[in-house]
């Protein structure tokens, strides 16, 4: 193997909590090690060079969705990005645009996700008569379970929100993650909401009819969720709900 490269990390630094602090890009050097991810590199930088560096992580395995950031122009998960995939030795790191900045690379995706869940009521709405928790749930057809699971894989990383120019321009737009989650409940046979109920939540300019199909969500989602098909499906479904109402 060739000699280890020295990588330069150009990192966005700004702490809104520090009075007088100004946003800037700061460069750090680090020797690359085999199997190094951006997440590993950031941890080493924080341990060895600058303990004030702020970034988020929990699982290190692409499961929690907290380490999303913009790496060389691509919004993605830092723990799943190997530094070896970059030909150039300079790696630029920016926080995800479109969220409240906590500091440096850390953004408040949690706040956004909670608000969107409350706004779109992203939880199961069972039919009113099965309130008794002792009643066994009806078994679900394996195909349906698989279909649900496919959408359930979202880790709420916020990448699709940042990658969407529509969302950046229109802050009240629900974004791909909101639409994907609605699609998930729409498929669920246990959910009692009708197309009409969903129409009231996403059948508008801030919902499915605000999407301009720029496909930043589909192309960047680290979980490869099928945004394009699902949003098109919802759009047709909502148009249909309108036509028969």
């Amino acid at each position: 193997m060739s000699a280890a490269r020295t990588l330069t990390f150009s990192i966005f630094r700004y702490d809104p909590q520090t009075p007088g602090d100004k946003p800037k890009m700061v460069s750090y050097q680090l020797d690359e090690t085999p199997g190094m991810t951006v997440f590993i590199a950031l941890n080493r930088l924080r341990e060895e060079q600058d303990s004030s560096l702020q970034f988020d992580f929990v699982c290190r395995a692409g499961i929690c969705g907290s380490c999303a950031m913009v790496i060389n122009g691509l919004p993605t998960l830092a723990c799943r990005t190997l530094t070896s995939k970059f030909e150039h030795t300079t790696i630029t790191l920016m926080p995800l645009p479109g969220f409240e900045l906590i500091g440096d690379l850390s953004v408040n995706t949690g706040k956004f996700m909670r608000e969107i869940a409350e706004r779109l009521k992203l939880w199961l709405h069972p039919s009113s008569d099965d309130k008794d928790i002792h009643i066994l749930e009806e078994p679900m057809a394996p195909e349906e379970a698989a279909r649900l699971y496919e959408l359930e894989r979202c880790v709420e990383c916020g990448v699709c929100v940042s990658a969407c120019a529509t969302k950046q321009m229109r802050e009240t737009f629900v974004g791909a993650v909101g639409l994907m989650k609605i699609a998930r409940f729409e498929f669920d046979c246990r959910d009692n909401r009708s197309a009409d109920d969903f129409y009231h939540v996403i059948g508008n300019q801030d919902g499915v009819f605000g999407c301009m199909t720029l496909l930043g969500c589909q192309d960047n989602c680290p979980k490869d969720l099928p945004h394009m098909q699902q949003i098109a499906y919802l759009r047709r479904k909502m148009t249909h709900a309108l036509a028969i109402s």
């Binding site: 966005f12 700004y14 809104p16 946003p23 920016m94 926080p95 995800l96 645009p97 479109g98 969220f99 409240e100 900045l101 953004v107 408040n108 706040k111 956004f112 608000e115 969107i116 409350e118 706004r119 779109l120 802050e171 009240t172 129409y199 009231h200 939540v201 996403i202 059948g203 508008n204 300019q205 801030d206 919902g207 009819f209 605000g210 759009r235 909502m238 148009t239 309108l242």
Partner: peptide
């Protein structure tokens, strides 16, 4: 670059379906 990359200020809970936006689309 914008520093505080805004977050939807408590997103309006009043989200209603608008026929008009569906028709316009």
């Amino acid at each position: 670059m914008t520093i505080n990359t805004f977050v939807p200020n408590p997103i309006s809970p009043r989200v209603l379906g608008h026929r008009r936006s569906a028709i316009a689309d």
